[in-house]
């Protein structure tokens, strides 16, 4: 394990200096250590290592939460619950089967679904009018969008559409897994996905055509 040397001032050390040393230590840990090394440190009881793990992936996980939960305050609550579960189940993580980010993202997705179920947010109404109207597809529309814009477009989808879309397209669940997880039929999952795709396409096109174009 490579650990960067950190200069510790001689003599009396002030609180500010201690905080500086801790920040340096965290940075050194973050940049040098691999996920597995950090996880081993967390499992052996290191609090700074857990902080490092959190700081390394908190943004990715908050992005996942925001895709499902929409509201940032709720998303942060879900993130908090998810990290408690991640810490609890960390000894079950098998580095030979998947990357830490993949494993932890599944925990975050499950926590999001738990949150939606708990608050009775997940409702799948079949009779929502189909988005039949289609705008011309622009090939560059998606690539022109920033991550924030695309996330906002996804969060604008109705909750049922959004959940199925996120699970199938981004998080890689199959329709069977979605159906089992959300307690719906496979055909409902497929219908919700189709409607979500159409609505998102429409939203992307709207965004693309309303966005001011940069002319060179």
């Amino acid at each position: 394990m490579n650990i960067q040397r950190i200069a510790i001032p001689a003599g009396r050390v002030s609180k500010k200096e201690i905080n500086g040393i801790l920040a340096d230590t965290n940075q050194a840990l973050q940049t040098k250590q691999t996920d597995i090394e950090i996880i081993h440190a967390v499992l052996s009881g290191s609090k700074p290592a857990f902080r490092t793990l959190y700081e390394r992936y908190a943004k990715n996980h908050l992005l996942t939460c925001l895709r499902y939960v929409k509201n940032k305050i709720d998303a942060e609550d879900v993130l908090q619950d998810a990290y408690i579960l991640i810490y609890r189940d960390l000894k079950q993580y098998d580095a030979t089967k998947s990357k830490y980010i993949t494993w932890s993202n599944k925990v975050v997705v499950n926590t999001c679904l738990m949150h939606l179920r708990k608050n009775n947010i997940l409702k799948f109404s079949e009779d929502i009018n189909d988005v039949a109207f289609q705008m011309p597809v622009n090939e560059n529309a998606i690539s022109a969008l920033s991550l924030k814009e695309l996330t906002q477009l996804i969060t604008q989808l109705p909750k049922g559409y959004r959940t199925v879309f996120n699970m199938f397209v981004i998080d890689g669940y199959s329709h069977r897994e979605i159906a089992e997880s959300l307690q719906i039929s496979i055909s409902t999952s497929k219908t919700q996905l189709l409607k979500a795709r159409r609505m998102l396409q429409q939203n992307i096109n709207n965004q693309h055509y309303t966005k001011p174009q940069n002319h060179v």
Partner: peptide, 22 residues
């Protein structure tokens, strides 16, 4: 219609380091 893979890749390979809103 967009490709699912495009959206998947945007989120899969997203560089969130400079995304302060996250």
């Amino acid at each position: 219609m967009f490709e699912d893979k495009d959206i998947h890749d945007i989120f899969e390979h997203a560089n969130v380091e400079n995304e302060d809103w996250l």
